[in-house]
C-alpha cells in the first residue's frame, strides 16, 4: 500500500483514496486529423513502461478529486515527488524524458 502525498490536500494519504491513470505528460495532439495512423496509435497505445523512474498520473478520487502527477520508481516503489497538474517534474532521467 503506497503512501501518497496529495499536492492539493497538502498531506499524505493512503493509496486506497487514489486511483492511477497511467503515464503522465501525454499530450493530446492538437490536430489529430493531421497525424498518420501510426502517430495516432503511438498517442493511443504506446507507453514508456520504464523499469526505474516513471512519471505517472494519479487522481485523488476519494479526496479532492484532483488529478496530479508523481515520479515513482517502478522497482522500489519509492515516490520521489508528486506535483500538480501543469507542473513539470523536478526529478528526471533519460528514460523518463
Amino acid at each position: 500500500m503506497l503512501h501518497i502525498h496529495c499536492p492539493y490536500c497538502e498531506e499524505y494519504r493512503e493509496e486506497e483514496e487514489f486511483s492511477v491513470v497511467g503515464e503522465a505528460h501525454i499530450i493530446r495532439p492538437l490536430a489529430p486529423e493531421e497525424l498518420t495512423d501510426q502517430e495516432w496509435a503511438s498517442y493511443l497505445f504506446f507507453r514508456k513502461n520504464p523499469r526505474g523512474l516513471h512519471h505517472e498520473m494519479w487522481a485523488h478520487s476519494h479526496g479532492c478529486r484532483k488529478f496530479f502527477n508523481m515520479t515513482r520508481h517502478t522497482v522500489t516503489y519509492q515516490i520521489l515527488e508528486t506535483y500538480k497538474m501543469g507542473q513539470q517534474p523536478s526529478i528526471t532521467t533519460e528514460d523518463t524524458k
Binding site: 486511483s19 491513470v21 499530450i27 493530446r28 498520473m57 487522481a59 478520487s61 478529486r65 484532483k66 488529478f67 497538474m85 501543469g86
Partner: peptide
C-alpha cells in the same frame, strides 16, 4: 464523471 474531470483538469483547464 471521472472522464469529464480527466479531460477538463489535464487537457482543457
Amino acid at each position: 464523471l471521472a472522464w469529464l474531470e480527466l479531460w477538463h483538469q489535464t487537457e482543457w483547464p
